[in-house]
Amino acid sequence: MRARSFAVWHAATGWLVVLSMLALSPSSAMTQHTRPVHGGWAVAPTAPIKLHVASGDVLVTGWSRDSVHLEGEMAEGETLFALGAWGGLKLGAEGRTVRGASRLRVFVPSRADLTVRSGSAAVEVSGLLGAVDIGVADGSVRVEGAPSTLTIEALSGDVQVEAPNGTRHVSRGETANTAPAASPNAASAAASIGALRVRTTRGRITVRGHIQAAQLATVSGVVDVSAAPLPALRVSTVSGNVHLVTASTLTAPVQVETFGGSVYVTRPRGTTTEQLHSDTGEVMRNGQRVAATNISPSSAVLLTVRSFRGTIVVNDTVPR
């Protein structure tokens, strides 16, 4: 009898543990209630805006008004905070929450300087012309538009930068009339990113569009740059592969350094002088193995690719 009651007790506690784990699992917690939030604050057109969000989805859009507007849904247990005044604003969600629970859309002046910090939020930014600085531990980052400077740091998340394909760089000194209006896409269509710095640990870095200068670094993430022309570019990886694609002749120096990662370059035939060197890997040009060249500093060399054990593959495209 005692053995039977022990078996019943044992089974009951086992199910209790399983049910408790299910109740605490993220999928179950995702169903928790959210509540709508909104707020508005008047700020200067070039005011620094700092946004802190632990998790969820954050969409930041530049607009032509001199104010910040926030709307969306916030998880229970989180509270909206905002500190600051006309000269600058710090806002966001604080409290313990569940990943993916909050969804916020924030409108900021397009010429404001924006700083975003998040643990695991998916951050999207568009239509900004000032300096943008985004730091995310695990979430993904996507930036569309033409900030004057763009700095992104992510540990495990992917980074995607979509710059416009125009050639004019919009400076912060432009007046409100020439700055982007309600449509950020219309504003960024004629601009470019002034300086781009991206650093990830293992997240993929994808860059498209017109950028004047870029520094991209990762440990094991893949770097994928496609632009015409390529910007003045420095890429550094430990084990991540690098893909560079351009349909235009190089006009600015491009330097790539990897250790275990391979490098793939596709550019027009007869582009520039170049130095391609891999200590123990192969160097291939248009499917043919070629001898590695020695690397020596020279301002005349526009394409420098150096790897320790990665393969270097350069393919010519036929000029249009």
Partner: peptide
């Protein structure tokens, strides 16, 4: 985030 912690160790 746990993924970020693992990313640092993996790096």
């Amino acid at each position: 985030p746990n993924a970020a912690r693992r990313a640092v160790v993996d790096a």
